[in-house]
Structure formats: C-alpha cells, structure tokens
C-alpha cells in the first residue's frame, strides 16, 4: 500500500511501463510530457484598488507599485486601464494576468469599434457601458476559475451604465461579483472600506456626494493605505469617470502625510516599552 495520495489509482511503472505521453491530447501534453499545470499563486502583484460612486460619476484609485513578494520591484506600473470613454478597470493581484486582460480588453475595444463604427453622439449611446464590460469580465474570470486556470486578480470595474447612471462593481479570481457604492480590493477591503463607508454609508449618500468630496475621500484612503500597507507606495493613479469621459492621472503623489502617529506605536520589534 502506498500512502502518497498522488499515487492512488495510477498505474505502476514496474508493471505497466512508464506512461507514454504521446497519447495525451496536445492540450494536455505540451512538450514536457506531463499534464498541463496552472498558476498556483501570483508572482508580481499589485495591491489594493479603491473606488467610490458619487452623484454623477465614479472615482477610482490604485498605486503604481508592482511587488515581487516583499520586494518593491516595479514602481511605475499603471493599474487603472480606461476602456472607451465610459469605463475604467482597476486591477489588483497578478500583474502578468492584468496585462493579459488588458490585451483582451484592447481587442474587445477594436472589435466593438469595428462593428459600431462612427464617432458621434448617436454611436456613443451604443458604446459598451461599464456594466456591459463588468458582465463580460465576470464571465472571463468565472470561466478561467472553472478551468482551474484562474486569472489571479481582483478587479474593480467603474464608469457609467447604459442609462448614464454611475456604476461600480467588482470581480475576483473566483468569478464572484458584487456591487456597492464604495468598493476596495485586497488590503483596502480592511483599511479603506471602513473609511469610505463612513463617508458613503449607502446608495442615497452616494447620490448626494459631489466630485470634490469623493476625490478627497479616495485620496485620504490612499494615504491611510500607504501608512499601513507594506506593499504600497506614495505614487498612485486616480481616475474620475463621468459623462464627459475618463479623466485619468497616473503620476499623483500623496499629499500632507503625517507620520506623527508612528511614534505612538508600541509593541513591535526590539522596542522595550
């Protein structure tokens, strides 16, 4: 009896000879002669993405850092990707999977423009909305998780829906989707979401919120995230989507930091209280 579960049910080489991978279909064999293996963990990663809906649009932000484990590896990676003037997608998680999705979205955009043509007000109505994009991405993510080959990301999709109302929703590597007036992925779900919910507790509050207040709340959250999230940095991208289009800034610096609180922290490292 062999106690390794991997061996259970497998033909023994000393009886049957070693497995001949020639008989595996191409999709399963590749060159190695072993079964296909899939991503088991993310490698280069981006941290939180946060977003808030306000009365006539959405504000979204993510910093420009791509980490390699605990190493701050790339410091100029833009994790907010605009899509056709109506939507922005914010990516957390694996950066190479983000780049794959970005290529996917670009080809989708080309396809859309090819079939809907013209650049006029009438055609703008037929453009894919943020809601359409979110539905599409959720299907992509769910399909990949069902194939046991996940895209290791948490996405926020924001912008306008067909009727022009602000839209904000999330998808993750499992294909789980949800929508709320404020959303945050990763560490942001713990650190930024409570702050954002204090500003925008419900849908009604978001309908009363103006752009300046929304931007201020998001900037404040980016600062808190930089204070506490060890995988974050002080340069970030921020985008505002409203009916005039996407206003994306990719080189913002955190303002008005105060590390005074750091002195109060006790109980870590070599300190003696």
């Amino acid at each position: 009896m062999n106690h390794f579960p991997e061996a259970w049910g497998r033909p023994r080489d000393d009886i049957y000879g070693s497995y001949n991978p020639q008989f595996l279909p191409n999709s399963h064999a590749q060159q190695s002669g072993h079964p296909t293996t899939h991503t088991q963990s993310p490698i280069v990663t981006g941290t939180s993405v946060i977003a808030v809906k306000y009365k006539d649009g959405v504000v979204i932000a993510a910093d420009n850092l791509a980490s390699y484990g605990s190493l701050a590896r790339f410091t100029d990676v833009h994790r907010l990707k605009p899509f056709n003037k109506k939507a922005v997608v914010g990516f957390g998680g694996d950066v190479s999977d983000m780049q794959y999705l970005d290529r996917l979205l670009n080809s989708l955009d080309v396809k859309e423009n090819y079939s809907h043509g013209h650049d006029d007000a009438e055609s703008d109505k037929a453009l894919m909305s943020a809601k359409n994009l979110h539905t599409y991405l959720s299907k992509v993510m769910y399909k990949r998780r069902s194939d046991f080959n996940p895209l290791w990301n948490a996405l926020l999709v924001c912008g306008l829906s067909e009727d022009g109302t602000p839209f904000l929703a999330s998808v993750d590597l499992l294909g789980t989707t949800f929508s709320a007036p404020t959303l945050a992925t990763g560490f942001g779900a713990h650190l930024a979401q409570p702050i954002l919910r204090r500003v925008v507790p419900d849908e009604a509050a978001s309908k009363a919120l103006d752009k300046e207040a929304a931007v201020a709340a998001v900037k404040e959250c980016m600062k808190v995230l930089f204070y506490r999230d060890a995988r974050s940095m002080n340069e970030y991208s921020i985008a505002v989507v409203d009916k005039s289009g996407v206003d994306l800034k990719q080189k913002e610096k955190l303002e008005g930091q105060s590390w005074a609180f750091a002195e109060q922290i006790k109980g870590y490292g070599t300190q003696t209280v």
């Binding site: 909305s129 809601k131 539905t135 599409y136 299907k139 067909e162």
Partner: peptide
C-alpha cells in the same frame, strides 16, 4: 448573458 445588453 455575456454582456448583459440586448444585441444590436
């Protein structure tokens, strides 16, 4: 299903 929009 895929886009949540009526086909053009």
């Amino acid at each position: 299903l895929t886009y949540d929009r009526p086909i053009a």
